[in-house]
Protein backbone atom coordinates (compact mmCIF):
# COMPACT_ATOMS: atom_id res chain seq x y z
CA UNK A 1 0.00 0.00 0.00
CA UNK A 2 1.33 3.46 -0.87
CA UNK A 3 0.06 6.95 -0.18
CA UNK A 4 -1.26 7.45 -3.73
CA UNK A 5 -3.31 4.29 -3.66
CA UNK A 6 -4.56 4.93 -0.11
CA UNK A 7 -5.52 8.50 -1.07
CA UNK A 8 -7.25 7.14 -4.18
CA UNK A 9 -9.26 4.65 -2.14
CA UNK A 10 -10.17 7.34 0.40
CA UNK A 11 -11.30 9.73 -2.39
CA UNK A 12 -13.43 6.92 -3.76
CA UNK A 13 -14.93 6.29 -0.33
CA UNK A 14 -15.48 10.03 0.23
CA UNK A 15 -17.27 10.36 -3.12
CA UNK A 16 -19.72 7.63 -2.09
CA UNK A 17 -20.16 9.13 1.40
CA UNK A 18 -20.84 12.58 -0.14
CA UNK A 19 -23.50 11.01 -2.35
CA UNK A 20 -25.08 9.18 0.60
CA UNK A 21 -24.97 12.44 2.59
CA UNK A 22 -26.69 14.35 -0.22
CA UNK A 23 -29.46 11.76 -0.55
CA UNK A 24 -29.91 11.28 3.21
CA UNK A 25 -29.66 14.96 4.19
CA UNK A 26 -31.73 16.46 1.39
CA UNK A 27 -33.97 13.38 0.83
CA UNK A 28 -33.42 14.20 -2.83
CA UNK A 29 -31.45 12.67 -5.68
CA UNK A 30 -31.97 15.45 -8.20
CA UNK A 31 -28.95 15.82 -10.44
CA UNK A 32 -27.83 12.25 -9.76
CA UNK A 33 -27.84 9.75 -12.61
CA UNK A 34 -29.38 6.42 -11.56
CA UNK A 35 -27.81 4.86 -14.67
CA UNK A 36 -24.30 5.74 -13.50
CA UNK A 37 -25.11 4.23 -10.10
CA UNK A 38 -26.37 1.05 -11.77
CA UNK A 39 -23.22 0.85 -13.88
CA UNK A 40 -21.06 1.27 -10.78
CA UNK A 41 -23.01 -1.46 -8.96
CA UNK A 42 -22.32 -3.75 -11.94
CA UNK A 43 -18.63 -2.71 -11.94
CA UNK A 44 -18.20 -3.68 -8.28
CA UNK A 45 -20.14 -6.95 -8.52
CA UNK A 46 -18.19 -8.14 -11.58
CA UNK A 47 -14.82 -6.95 -10.27
CA UNK A 48 -15.12 -8.43 -6.79
CA UNK A 49 -16.09 -11.95 -7.83
CA UNK A 50 -13.03 -13.08 -5.87
CA UNK A 51 -14.42 -11.50 -2.71
CA UNK A 52 -14.99 -14.86 -0.99
CA UNK A 53 -12.30 -16.88 -2.72
CA UNK A 54 -9.12 -14.76 -2.51
CA UNK A 55 -8.43 -13.11 0.84
CA UNK A 56 -5.90 -10.29 0.38
CA UNK A 57 -6.32 -8.23 3.56
CA UNK A 58 -9.01 -7.10 5.97
CA UNK A 59 -8.79 -3.64 4.44
CA UNK A 60 -9.32 -5.03 0.95
CA UNK A 61 -12.29 -7.16 1.95
CA UNK A 62 -13.95 -4.45 4.05
CA UNK A 63 -13.58 -1.81 1.30
CA UNK A 64 -15.05 -4.18 -1.30
CA UNK A 65 -18.05 -4.86 0.93
CA UNK A 66 -18.50 -1.13 1.61
CA UNK A 67 -18.35 -0.27 -2.09
CA UNK A 68 -20.85 -2.98 -3.08
CA UNK A 69 -23.16 -2.30 -0.14
CA UNK A 70 -23.22 1.50 -0.44
CA UNK A 71 -23.74 1.53 -4.20
CA UNK A 72 -26.54 -1.05 -3.90
CA UNK A 73 -28.13 1.13 -1.18
CA UNK A 74 -27.96 4.20 -3.44
CA UNK A 75 -29.53 2.33 -6.38
CA UNK A 76 -32.26 1.00 -4.05
CA UNK A 77 -32.88 4.47 -2.58
CA UNK A 78 -33.22 6.16 -5.97
CA UNK A 79 -35.66 3.54 -7.22
CA UNK A 80 -37.74 2.53 -4.22
CA UNK A 81 -37.42 5.05 -1.38
CA UNK A 82 -40.89 6.72 -1.37
CA UNK A 83 -39.55 10.26 -0.90
CA UNK A 84 -36.21 10.14 -2.71
CA UNK A 85 -37.46 8.47 -5.88
CA UNK A 86 -39.81 11.38 -6.58
CA UNK A 87 -36.83 13.71 -7.09
CA UNK A 88 -35.11 11.47 -9.65
CA UNK A 89 -34.67 13.34 -12.98
CA UNK A 90 -36.08 10.47 -15.02
CA UNK A 91 -36.66 12.56 -18.14
CA UNK A 92 -33.10 13.95 -18.07
CA UNK A 93 -31.31 10.69 -17.26
CA UNK A 94 -31.83 9.13 -20.68
CA UNK A 95 -28.30 7.96 -21.59
CA UNK A 96 -28.52 4.53 -23.27
CA UNK A 97 -26.23 2.87 -20.73
CA UNK A 98 -27.10 -0.63 -21.90
CA UNK A 99 -24.98 0.06 -25.00
CA UNK A 100 -22.05 0.78 -22.68
CA UNK A 101 -22.60 -2.55 -20.91
CA UNK A 102 -22.83 -4.45 -24.20
CA UNK A 103 -19.82 -2.74 -25.79
CA UNK A 104 -17.64 -3.30 -22.71
CA UNK A 105 -18.65 -6.95 -22.50
CA UNK A 106 -17.84 -7.56 -26.18
CA UNK A 107 -14.53 -5.74 -25.72
CA UNK A 108 -13.77 -7.93 -22.67
CA UNK A 109 -14.46 -11.04 -24.74
CA UNK A 110 -11.73 -9.95 -27.17
CA UNK A 111 -9.33 -8.05 -24.92
CA UNK A 112 -8.50 -9.86 -21.67
CA UNK A 113 -5.52 -11.50 -20.02
CA UNK A 114 -6.79 -15.07 -19.71
CA UNK A 115 -9.92 -16.54 -21.20
CA UNK A 116 -11.43 -17.46 -17.86
CA UNK A 117 -14.80 -16.47 -16.36
CA UNK A 118 -13.19 -14.34 -13.64
CA UNK A 119 -10.65 -12.65 -15.92
CA UNK A 120 -13.23 -11.72 -18.54
CA UNK A 121 -15.55 -10.22 -15.92
CA UNK A 122 -12.58 -8.42 -14.35
CA UNK A 123 -11.63 -6.84 -17.73
CA UNK A 124 -15.33 -6.05 -18.31
CA UNK A 125 -15.51 -4.23 -14.96
CA UNK A 126 -12.37 -2.22 -15.76
CA UNK A 127 -13.71 -1.11 -19.15
CA UNK A 128 -17.16 -0.38 -17.74
CA UNK A 129 -15.77 1.73 -14.90
CA UNK A 130 -13.93 3.91 -17.41
CA UNK A 131 -17.22 4.94 -19.06
CA UNK A 132 -19.63 4.60 -16.12
CA UNK A 133 -19.53 8.34 -15.39
CA UNK A 134 -20.87 9.28 -18.85
CA UNK A 135 -24.60 9.23 -17.94
CA UNK A 136 -23.81 11.39 -14.90
CA UNK A 137 -21.78 13.94 -16.93
CA UNK A 138 -24.53 14.13 -19.57
CA UNK A 139 -27.13 14.64 -16.84
CA UNK A 140 -25.05 17.47 -15.30
CA UNK A 141 -24.80 19.21 -18.66
CA UNK A 142 -28.54 18.89 -19.19
CA UNK A 143 -29.54 19.98 -15.72
CA UNK A 144 -27.40 23.14 -16.00
CA UNK A 145 -26.46 24.29 -12.53
CA UNK A 146 -24.96 21.65 -10.27
CA UNK A 147 -25.48 21.58 -6.53
CA UNK A 148 -22.35 21.51 -4.38
CA UNK A 149 -22.63 17.95 -3.10
CA UNK A 150 -23.17 16.54 -6.59
CA UNK A 151 -20.19 18.53 -7.88
CA UNK A 152 -18.04 17.25 -5.01
CA UNK A 153 -19.24 13.70 -5.67
CA UNK A 154 -18.03 13.81 -9.29
CA UNK A 155 -14.84 15.62 -8.34
CA UNK A 156 -13.75 12.98 -5.77
CA UNK A 157 -14.77 10.19 -8.12
CA UNK A 158 -12.47 11.65 -10.79
CA UNK A 159 -9.65 12.28 -8.30
CA UNK A 160 -9.74 8.65 -7.12
CA UNK A 161 -8.71 7.19 -10.48
CA UNK A 162 -6.22 10.00 -11.12
CA UNK A 163 -4.46 8.99 -7.87
CA UNK A 164 -4.54 5.35 -8.96
CA UNK A 165 -2.53 6.36 -12.03
CA UNK A 166 0.02 8.01 -9.69
CA UNK A 167 -0.05 4.77 -7.67
CA UNK A 168 0.80 2.71 -10.80
CA UNK A 169 3.67 5.06 -11.63
CA UNK A 170 4.92 4.81 -8.04
CA UNK A 171 4.74 0.98 -8.04
CA UNK A 172 6.48 0.84 -11.41
CA UNK A 173 9.55 2.58 -9.99
CA UNK A 174 9.45 1.26 -6.42
CA UNK A 175 8.40 -2.34 -7.01
CA UNK A 176 9.69 -2.77 -10.59
CA UNK A 177 6.23 -3.96 -11.52
CA UNK A 178 4.00 -2.41 -14.10
CA UNK A 179 0.27 -2.11 -13.99
CA UNK A 180 -1.80 -4.34 -16.23
CA UNK A 181 -2.21 -2.48 -19.51
CA UNK A 182 -6.00 -3.04 -19.30
CA UNK A 183 -6.14 -1.07 -16.02
CA UNK A 184 -3.64 1.51 -17.20
CA UNK A 185 -5.28 2.43 -20.49
CA UNK A 186 -8.80 2.31 -19.03
CA UNK A 187 -7.65 4.42 -16.08
CA UNK A 188 -6.23 7.05 -18.45
CA UNK A 189 -9.44 7.10 -20.52
CA UNK A 190 -11.52 7.30 -17.34
CA UNK A 191 -9.53 10.24 -15.96
CA UNK A 192 -9.54 12.00 -19.35
CA UNK A 193 -13.35 11.88 -19.37
CA UNK A 194 -13.30 14.03 -16.23
CA UNK A 195 -10.89 16.56 -17.74
CA UNK A 196 -13.49 19.08 -18.87
CA UNK A 197 -15.44 18.64 -15.61
CA UNK A 198 -12.26 19.36 -13.62
CA UNK A 199 -11.68 22.47 -15.76
CA UNK A 200 -15.16 23.92 -15.08
CA UNK A 201 -14.98 22.78 -11.43
CA UNK A 202 -11.68 24.65 -11.02
CA UNK A 203 -13.14 27.76 -12.74
CA UNK A 204 -16.17 27.74 -10.43
CA UNK A 205 -13.89 27.36 -7.41
CA UNK A 206 -11.51 30.15 -8.63
CA UNK A 207 -14.33 32.57 -9.44
CA UNK A 208 -16.25 31.44 -6.38
CA UNK A 209 -19.18 30.98 -8.72
CA UNK A 210 -21.81 28.26 -9.06
CA UNK A 211 -20.56 25.25 -11.02
CA UNK A 212 -22.10 25.42 -14.46
CA UNK A 213 -21.31 22.98 -17.29
CA UNK A 214 -21.99 24.36 -20.79
CA UNK A 215 -24.58 22.29 -22.63
Amino acid sequence: MNIFRFAGDMFHLISILVLLLKIYATKSCSGISLKTQELYALVFVTRYLDLFTDFISVYNTVMKLVFIGSTAAIVWCMQWHPVVKRSYDRELDTFRHYFLVGACFVLALFLHENFTFQEIFWAFSIYLEAVAILPQLVLLQRSGNVDNLTGQYVFFLGAYRAFYILNWIYRYFMEQRFSRWISCISGLVQTALYADFFYYYFLSWKNNAKLHLPA
Partner: peptide
Amino acid sequence: CFQTLPKDEL
Protein backbone atom coordinates in the same frame (compact mmCIF):
# COMPACT_ATOMS: atom_id res chain seq x y z
CA CYS B 1 11.70 -8.35 -17.11
CA PHE B 2 9.16 -6.62 -14.96
CA GLN B 3 6.25 -8.58 -13.52
CA THR B 4 2.73 -7.26 -13.69
CA LEU B 5 1.16 -6.02 -10.49
CA PRO B 6 -0.69 -8.58 -8.35
CA LYS B 7 -4.46 -8.15 -8.17
CA ASP B 8 -4.30 -6.54 -4.73
CA GLU B 9 -5.97 -3.27 -5.69
CA LEU B 10 -9.61 -2.31 -5.37
